[in-house]
Simulated scan of single mutants.
Amino acid sequence: MPEPRNSSESDDDSLVAPELPEDEEHDKQGLDLAKSLAGRLKQQAANGGFKPVKRKRRSRIEGVQVSGARPDDRDPQKLTNTLGRLMRDQGWEVDVAVHGVMARWPTIVGRETAQHCTPESYENNILTVRTSSTAWATQLKLLAPDLVRRLNAELGDGTVVAVNVQGPHAPSWRRGPRTVRGGRGPRDTYG
């Protein structure tokens, strides 16, 4: 049984392991290793303690910038800002706005008018609109100046200069039972 420790004993005695009974075996190398490590740690503490390890400061590589406290382009960005910058850089702003107007066509021209006419294309500041009948084509031609004004209010001044109104797609009379050889075919009010 180990003897009680006296406070006047030196610290070296505190690292000595209590003696084990003879019948139990233990690894003397492990005990010796632990004693030697404890002795080295004591010696370092007595010589002024542990010194902090100095880390080398990273040198800045020329040309590489590190993000600072202020926001810049390398920081995470909102998707709307990034897409807006991409559209502006590529010159897609007008095309995207026009396609947005085509998607909102019923709210711009009215529900009844939108049922009878649809926008087909936008090129060179001219919007092409296809109607369901010649009567609606005539009506839309009369409303074209008002429609140009509304579209420019939505898209920006000068985005739409004119509206090209086209009637319905006429059937082809070049083949079939109603074909007239050498003639113009049946007369109708298409387009």
Rank of each mutant, 00 (worst) to 15 (best):
M1Y: 06
E3D: 07
S8Y: 05
S8K: 09
D13P: 00
D13H: 01
D13W: 01
S14V: 06
V16E: 10
A17R: 12
E19S: 10
E19A: 08
E19N: 02
L20M: 04
P21G: 03
E22T: 06
G30S: 11
G39Y: 04
Q43F: 01
Q44K: 11
A46K: 10
P52K: 13
S59M: 08
I61E: 12
E62F: 03
E62R: 06
V66T: 14
D75V: 04
N81T: 10
T82Y: 15
L83H: 08
D89P: 00
D89V: 13
W92P: 03
A97E: 05
V98A: 00
H99T: 13
A103L: 03
W105N: 07
P106I: 10
C117D: 02
S121C: 00
N124V: 09
N125C: 09
I126Q: 14
I126A: 05
L127C: 03
A135N: 05
A137E: 04
L142F: 12
L143W: 14
P145D: 03
D146F: 00
R149I: 03
L151E: 07
N152Q: 09
A153H: 02
E154W: 04
E154N: 03
E154M: 09
V163P: 07
N164L: 07
Q166R: 12
H169L: 14
A170V: 13
S172K: 12
R174P: 00
R178F: 12
T179K: 14
V180Q: 10
R181S: 11
